[in-house]
């Protein structure tokens, strides 16, 4: 019997809060149906550290530091279809609310001059990725094939989108699944 090749799916969270991944888990028992059809590559669910060749990549969060850029590019190189999952990936979201502030001043205030701080120090461990001047939506860095807005998108919205895609339909979110909040 010819085994239908399973779809490879990778997921990651960049400058996000993992809310979109939690929402992904909200598909509940449908996860079992999903793993009949897909194998997970790099994802917080597998703990695989680097993304191999995949069919679909789901990116939660925007880009706020140098490491985010590397991870995003790794996903773009390896995934045939790359999907922005959630408000932060789509338009920067909450982390981008710092964009009208000066990054240097932000770090100063948080680590040095803020109320009640003594002997503060701006973290400078070489292991820490350097923050970017501004937070960006992921489509400002690499080409993105699809967008699932929402903060977070509901489990139902994610399920509808993924099953449309897996079944070869054009993915569509109508009322009430398409939400920005």
């Amino acid at each position: 019997m010819l085994d239908k090749r399973k779809i490879r799916l990778a997921t990651t969270s960049l400058a996000g809060c993992f809310g979109c991944h939690m929402s992904f888990l909200d598909i509940d028992e449908r996860l079992l149906e999903l793993i009949e059809r897909v194998d997970f590559d790099r994802s917080p669910l597998t703990d695989i550290k680097h993304c191999g060749p995949c069919d679909i990549g789901l990116i939660e969060g925007g880009v706020c530091n140098a490491e985010n850029v590397h991870v995003l590019r790794e996903f773009r190189r390896n995934c045939k279809v790359l999907i922005a999952l959630g408000a932060c990936a789509v338009n920067g979201g909450l982390p981008a609310q710092r964009n009208h502030l000066d990054l240097g001043q932000c770090l100063q205030e948080v680590y040095l001059t803020g109320e009640g701080l003594v002997n503060g120090q701006i973290p400078n461990d070489p292991e820490l990725p350097l923050p970017l001047d501004k937070v960006h939506p992921i489509d400002e860095i690499v080409r993105i094939d699809y967008f699932i807005p929402g903060c977070p998108p509901s489990g139902d919205a994610i399920w509808k989108f993924l099953t449309d895609l897996l079944d070869g339909r054009t993915p569509r979110l109508g009322h009430p699944l398409l939400r920005f909040d």
């Binding site: 789509v90 807005p149 569509r172």
Partner: peptide, 8 residues
């Protein structure tokens, strides 16, 4: 929503 704008 009505015009299915998925991204800016």
């Amino acid at each position: 929503y009505e015009l299915e704008m998925l991204s800016p």
